[in-house]
């Protein structure tokens, strides 16, 4: 699998740990496992979505990617029918306003290609803040994703080292939050969905730096925003002022159900 230098640079910019290194599949080897029945080949695209791109919704991203595929002239497979479109399957949902160094989407191609060919064709068609870091045959099923790791930076004039300790205690004890679901608001204890959550206070920048691994499987997806909401409610630190009290969340990795093995 091609590990991209651009990904390292983005991670450094965001002061985050980059996604764990995946297997070292040869970027120049042809992916040629074409399904004889459909005549297609599934390729997994790994990409980051940072900076301005955090404000692009899932639907907008799909529309953008479709057009980028056409510009790239790659042999993308289109669905048959009234409204032909490339079939894209995305891994874990990502909220608007959350950046990510580790997103995956599966796409179907009609001819064998190497990972490097795909990246070289697609990356020039996409903005700097939305770039592929790998293209390879899928190893796991999309549904194998169990956890996602996040880092968050929280600015608040009243934040101290004590706040960091309070946050650690808060995330390890039962924590009931109101979840907004389609069937109405529900009170849920989110603590079982938090695998780890640890915060340090950085004296130099006055920031709280939160690292967390949260449940991300289909049935138990925890939106990282709940961690911020909990801090706002329980610790009285409200992050709603672009001048002094703000936060940013970055998804840094996708992991399997053991919470350790990187998804690929």
């Amino acid at each position: 699998m091609v590990q991209s230098l651009a990904l390292q640079i983005q991670a450094e910019k965001l002061r985050c740990t980059p996604p764990k290194v995946r297997t070292k599949a040869d970027p120049d080897a042809y992916m040629d496992a074409i399904n004889p029945q459909s005549g297609t080949l599934t390729v997994r695209l790994g990409f980051y979505k940072v900076g301005k791109m955090q404000f692009i919704s899932h639907l907008d991203l799909q529309r953008f990617m479709k057009r980028a595929f056409i510009r790239s002239k790659l042999p993308i497979w289109f669905s048959e029918g009234f409204n032909p479109h490339p079939k894209m399957v995305f891994s874990t949902p990502l909220s608007i306003g959350v950046q990510s160094l580790c997103e995956y989407a599966d796409i179907k191609m009609t001819a064998p290609l190497t990972g490097r060919q795909i990246m070289d064709a697609l990356n020039p068609c996409m903005p700097e803040e939305l770039q592929l870091f790998c293209a390879a045959a899928p190893v796991h099923k999309m549904t194998d994703v169990g956890y996602a790791s996040y880092e968050a930076f929280l600015h608040h004039p009243n934040a101290t080292a004590d706040t960091a300790r309070q946050m650690d205690a808060m995330y390890s004890a039962p924590l009931v939050m109101t979840k907004h679901t389609k069937s109405g608001d529900k009170d849920v204890d989110i603590s079982p969905l938090i695998k780890t959550a640890h915060t340090v206070f950085d004296e130099a920048t006055g920031e709280l730096h939160l690292r967390a691994i949260l449940s991300a499987d289909n049935a138990n997806f925890l939106n990282p925003e709940y961690l911020i909401r909990a801090a706002e409610r329980n610790l009285g630190l409200v992050f709603d002022d672009p001048a002094s009290a703000w936060y940013q969340i970055i998804r840094t990795d996708l992991l399997l159900c053991d919470g350790i093995t990187p998804f690929q």
């Binding site: 900076g51 301005k52 791109m53 955090q54 404000f55 692009i56 919704s57 907008d60 953008f64 980028a68 608007i96 306003g97 068609c125 996409m126 903005p127 803040e129 600015h155 992050f239 709603d240 002022d241 672009p242 001048a243 703000w246 936060y247 940013q248």
Partner: peptide, 22 residues
Amino acid sequence: MNIDQLLKSVSKPGRYTGGETG
């Protein structure tokens, strides 16, 4: 000033970011 935080608080932040292809 953290512009990202500001953009999180408004509807359709994609209106204000620029950075489009082309």
